[in-house]
Design a protein around this nucleic acid. Structure first.
Length: 414
DNA sequence: TCTGGGGTCCTAGGACCC
DNA sequence: TCTGGGGTCCTAGGACCC
């Protein structure tokens, strides 16, 4: 039996939330940014988009296009709360809700029709509820799978409701640029063009054997995408896979070269990574150091430890040994630390007394930081927090992907 | 006053083991 | 006097998503 999938896409989410929170911003060209320096536009209101302001653009460029642009710093608590509330609304219509990002979700409403009526009616009810409760608009696409539902939601913005009937799919795909499919980016678009493939129609007709030879397993996937086929299920948050890595990175206000300065930043990053790992009860074996140089080229260096850890100072010491082994080629623009190869923290007794002490200190610091904000560290006197407070699109309402800005826990863990 | 941050997945090569 | 091959783990880099 064929499925009925909805894709709900909040329109200009961050900017729209800000306009709701502050009536003076309504009807104005607004752009949300992450930090004061070396930042990009995270979201622009439709008023700003009318001037050509886009996500990813530098502030400078955005101001050139729209001199009266109003810049607002991202307030992630606001966005995560709103997003969680919207997800709750969606769950009233089906338990099959997959949170795709902070402002997008897929719903499998195949089993909801008897209760709530036909798909379009369900979509209208959802739009009404979100508008009533939060004053926000969304675009909804309805189709037989996720790929097509997402495509449909993109077709009318803002406040769209688009149904892609199976009988319409071949015509729609025939002229649709491959780049419009979720999963085909700039590079893949270029590669496909070298085969003479420009549209989904071209892609679907292209011999799958050649795609497979060139792209491996991705080749089959591409072929199916070209035909509008996608049998991937809607995966509710509760059933989603465990997180696979935890990372933090920061672009520095100015490029740095000195080892001590770099290590100071690595300590901050390691502490944030360790803290999130502990909070979410995962430990990791592999530590990765990421360096972006002045010219934007970047390197990664990783090492795999003997044992899993969630200890900030151990993460830090791994990051430092990776740094030490490296000859820096240029001043450093940005730094990152990642912990991967994760397992759930087993609550076993620590092997050594020292390890136990460090774990206790780590968790005590976490509690202080939860209460009073970040800044309590392993003794280094650090400057102000420089890390950008940008919420990741991979944010999830629960779990380790809930990057920052979670409510402090109740402190009862230990 | 160029160009954010947090993720996932894939590839390719090498070490090592059986 | 032969020189296979599968499996697993590790590392580095890159594409892609929002």
């Amino acid at each position: 039996m064929s499925r009925i999938i909805l894709h709900v896409d909040m329109n200009c989410f961050f900017a729209a939330v800000e306009q709701q929170a502050d009536p003076r911003l309504r009807g104005q060209p607004v752009a949300v940014i992450g930090s004061a320096k070396r930042t990009v536009i995270l979201t622009a209101s439709y008023e700003a988009r009318a001037f050509g302001v886009k996500t990813g653009m530098t502030v400078h460029e955005a101001r050139n296009r729209c001199p009266q642009l109003i810049l607002v710093f991202a307030d992630n608590r606001k966005y995560t709360r709103t997003s969680s509330g919207i997800i709750e609304i969606l769950k009233e219509f089906t338990p099959q809700v997959e949170v795709f990002s902070i402002d997008e979700a897929f719903l499998d409403i195949t089993g909801s029709l008897k209760l709530f009526g036909p798909p379009e009616q369900i979509a209208r009810l959802i739009k009404e509820r979100i508008r009533e409760d939060y004053g926000l608009l969304c675009s909804i696409g309805i189709a037989s799978n996720k790929l097509l539902a997402k495509l449909a939601s993109e077709m009318v913005k803002p406040d769209g409701l688009t149904v892609l009937q199976p009988s319409d799919v071949p015509d729609v795909l025939e002229a649709l640029p491959v780049r419009d499919l979720c999963g085909i980016g700039k590079k893949m678009e270029e590669q496909l063009r070298s085969f003479g493939i420009k549209t989904c129609g071209d892609l679907g007709r292209f011999p799958v054997r050649i795609l497979r030879d060139r792209f491996g397993v991705t080749g089959d996937h591409l072929h199916r995408m070209g035909l509008g086929l996608d049998d991937s299920p809607v995966v509710p948050v509760e059933e989603a896979d465990d997180v696979k890595s935890v990372s933090h990175s920061m672009t520095l206000e100015t490029d740095i070269e000195k080892d001590a300065e770099i290590r100071k930043r690595l300590l901050q990053l390691s502490e944030r990574v360790g803290r999130r790992a502990r909070r979410h009860e995962v430990r990791g074996k592999t530590v990765t150091l990421w360096i972006r140089y002045r010219d934007f080229s970047s390197i990664t260096r990783q090492l795999t430890r003997q044992q899993h850890t969630d200890d900030s100072s151990e993460i830090f010491s791994s990051a430092c040994s990776l740094l030490q082994a490296e000859t820096l080629m240029q001043p450093v623009r940005a730094l990152g630390v990642r912990l991967s190869n994760l397992c759930r923290r087993a609550d076993q007794l620590p092997l050594f007394e020292d390890e136990g002490k460090r774990a206790l200190i780590g968790r005590a610091m976490d509690r202080v930081n939860d209460k009073f904000g970040s800044g309590v560290t392993f003794g280094s006197v650090l400057g102000e927090e420089r890390g950008s407070k940008v919420i990741s699109p991979s944010w999830r309402p629960e779990g380790a992907r809930n990057v920052e800005f979670e409510e402090p826990d109740d402190g009862k863990r230990d």
